[in-house]
Design a protein around this nucleic acid. Structure first.
Lengths: 333, 333
DNA sequence: CTGTTAGCGCGTTCAT
DNA sequence: ATGAACGCGCTAACAG
């Protein structure tokens, strides 16, 4: 293996000089600079990462922690983060927190193989993050709200999203609006529901408790809820806590000859890839993930540089209007 | 920061002893072992990754190189790799080759911050990989075929897949089968086409050159090809080079009142998520990605351990039968 | 102002 | 079970 010393020898200078050149430090005469560069090039010198890290105590690398790399959800998020990282000269790696305490993610954080991390992984313990942050390790959390000196939250504003979605239906004349809930353990779901309630309240509309139902964030959850819904009096619009559930619901309604959007309007949440291909194409609400990712990356790098940052950033959710909602007045006529 | 020496002091032993205990090396008496463990625990000792790597010259980490993390295609592949890696005590990280020579991936390979890599990234140069392999760095390549002592190929057998797909149609009585090609620059596409030709040839059926058309691996590519196809005499079955194209084709056929599968059978390739939700659900051919990933991980670890491996592994493609194909005899009757 | 020398950082390993 | 040497790049203090 070629070391800095080999380069120094070939260039006829001291190894420290080589280091200075390679890191563009201090004043080194152009002449020796060229000599060093030429020698490094000739020998095909590559610095040894570990040795450099050992001394510098930083890796120029930031990590994205995901709870399971096989979830495509992260794609956009990660590409946003990547753009920030690259533009600032940081390397970016993704690691999974599968395995909890002994996961790659946990190890990399503990062993300081990263300068900072962005977390999108429910299955990593608050405790672990708080502990790391305690020691000054910068963390951006995107899937929960956590407060500590070195932790910043970048969150989708699900409450605002839920509010917006509900307002969207209200504005179309709907009053009988059901919210089909996701799992109660999910913060996203809760916030969306809060937003729903706020909009309903603001419009002076009561929530019909008979329509209060839900399930997992899955197709079957939506399917079952829709079936249940059809056993009683139908609302005129249904707000599904996410698109997957809306897909299930759509299926159930179809089976019972309830036409969408003629007989019933439905909206989803998330704007998953599929939603655009449904019949009818689903009106839904989009989380601007790339933007969120790039913000998260940007904020982390600010922390790394010791710049001041807010403790929480909230990203606005956006409406993606398609064809699964109609105006209530039109239905009636 | 707590170092091994702090632990040694507290436990009243030498730092080397601590190292032995922590790495379960050599014979250390149970008594001191416990003392050391207790001390390490009390101080909350965590080894410094870089220092350890510096000495050991290995990182216990393998990397997956993807050309752009925002492509969901990799999800299953990665989760297969992950399962292999974890089971063998390796950490796994994903890094992107976006940026070519100066990408994170390229740097990590060069700086030996990984023990080995699995590559699924067309945009990384053969040269870079060959160079790294030259120095004994183990690489598994999944998106091309590359020959070098330390490179192993794990590939989807697209030729066999194309053959199988065509045979599937032939077995249903079809003789007039069009292959709608993807881009000619794509190896996958070429291999699928080769398989198609082999099956046709074997069955003694001539390829109708009027049906020889194609486009990008995209919806529009399939759409346009289908339109073109309908200008002449239709085949009884169409084999689209991938699902995206099949989706576009389906749309075009629908627009022209060609019913699938009554008037025309179609198949796709890839089994993307969407294909199951189409109308009719698309018969397609699945690349067992998780299996491929786990094989790739397994092979890489074998290389790391110095065990013997083949130079190329080919993964069989599997049929996913849905409702977009009918028997030719039934159509005629 | 340019280049050098010496020693640091931390875990691992080998000879004792 | 131990102490010292080692790995390699970086930096502070120093000399030319």
């Amino acid at each position: 293996m070629i070391t800095i010393k080999d380069v120094a020898k070939l260039a006829g200078v001291a190894s420290s000089t080589v280091s200075c050149v390679l890191n563009s430090k201090k004043y080194v005469s152009e002449h020796t600079r060229q000599k060093v560069l030429a020698a490094a090039n000739e020998l095909n010198y590559i610095k040894h990462g570990a040795a450099s890290e050992l001394k510098r105590k930083q890796t120029q690398t930031i990590g994205v922690i995901v709870h399971d790399m096989s979830v495509p959800y992260f794609s956009d998020l990660v590409s946003g983060i990547e753009s920030s990282a690259i533009s600032q000269g940081y390397d970016l790696i993704v690691c999974s927190s599968l395995g909890g305490e002994r996961s790659t993610a946990a190890r990399f954080i503990r062993e300081r193989r990263l300068d900072g991390v962005i977390v999108i992984a429910e299955n990593i313990e608050d405790e672990l993050l708080l502990q790391a942050a305690e020691t000054g390790f910068p963390i951006v959390v995107m899937d929960r709200e956590l407060h500590s000196k070195h932790i910043v939250n970048v969150l989708m504003d699900d409450e605002q999203g839920g509010y917006m979605a509900t307002r969207f239906l209200l504005d179309k004349g709907h009053r009988a609006i059901a919210y089909i809930s996701g799992p109660l353990s999910s913060d996203c779901n809760l916030m969306r529901y809060q937003g729903y309630l706020r909009a309903m309240h603001e419009a002076g509309v009561e929530e019909n408790e008979n329509w209060r139902m839900g399930g997992q964030f899955l197709k079957t959850g939506g399917y079952n809820a829709a079936k249940l819904l059809m056993e009683g009096e139908l609302p005129t619009a249904v707000f599904f806590a996410n698109d997957e559930m809306a897909i299930g619901g759509l299926e159930a309604f179809k089976e019972h000859q309830v036409s969408i959007p003629e007989d019933l309007s439905i909206i989803g949440f998330d704007n998953i890839h599929l939603s655009e291909y449904l019949n009818p194409p689903l009106t839904t609400f989009r989380q601007p993930k790339t933007d969120a990712g790039s913000l998260a990356g940007h904020v982390l790098i600010q922390m790394l540089k010791g710049e001041a940052v807010e403790s929480t950033y909230r990203i606005n959710i956006q409406c993606v209007e398609r064809d699964s909602v109609s105006c209530y007045s039109i239905i009636k006529s």
